[in-house]
């Protein structure tokens, strides 16, 4: 049982680490392009799209690195959960308003063709993975 918990925790931590590190790096490489993707959500005043585009990738990179190197795992998971909730809210807003945009989650140029519905589903899966990893981390800590 302990082995399986460890395996689940390891898998969740590594998957989340790689996913968010990749997402952060690819956006950080094209901040202006990502700002355009943020603007496509039509949620923020124009300049604030650039502020989000300039900072969000680095938060993702920091969380990804911490998870991969097993440092400050709980804070990183908590921050990812918070960000994921914001992403889910933004995507729900896009779906509600009937906007047909690329989510920009893993492609700052917006050419991936990922719809808001597909991105929402992906974020819900990631949210589940974050919660499970948190629970396995807590269980491991309690066993010690």
């Amino acid at each position: 049982m302990k082995l399986s918990r460890n395996s689940f925790f390891l898998t969740g931590r590594l998957v989340l680490g790689v996913v968010f590190l990749y997402a952060g790096l690819i956006k950080a490489a094209d901040v202006a392009g990502f700002a355009g993707q943020v603007a496509a959500y039509q949620l923020l005043p124009y300049a604030f799209n650039y502020l989000v585009a300039a900072t969000l990738p680095y938060v993702e990179i920091a969380c990804g690195v911490l998870l991969l190197f097993k440092r400050h795992v709980r804070p990183a998971l908590l921050l990812l959960a918070g960000m994921n909730l914001v992403f889910i809210g933004a995507l729900l807003s896009v779906a509600w308003r009937g906007l047909e945009i690329d989510c920009g989650c893993f492609d700052p140029t917006g050419s991936s063709g990922t719809s808001a519905g597909a991105a929402l589903l992906r974020d819900l899966v990631l949210m589940g993975l974050i919660v499970m990893t948190w629970r396995f981390k807590s269980a491991r800590s309690a066993e010690r």
Binding site: A28, V31, A32, A35, A47, Y50, L51, A53, A54, T55, L56, P57, Y58, V59, I61, A62, C63, L66, H72, R74, P75, A76, L78, L79, G82
Partner: peptide, 21 residues
Amino acid sequence: QAVLLLICSSLAGLAVNHQLV
């Protein structure tokens, strides 16, 4: 710690992209 992480990583992003912002 999560809030501190958010602040520090955001500042890093701003440091790199300050001209654009």
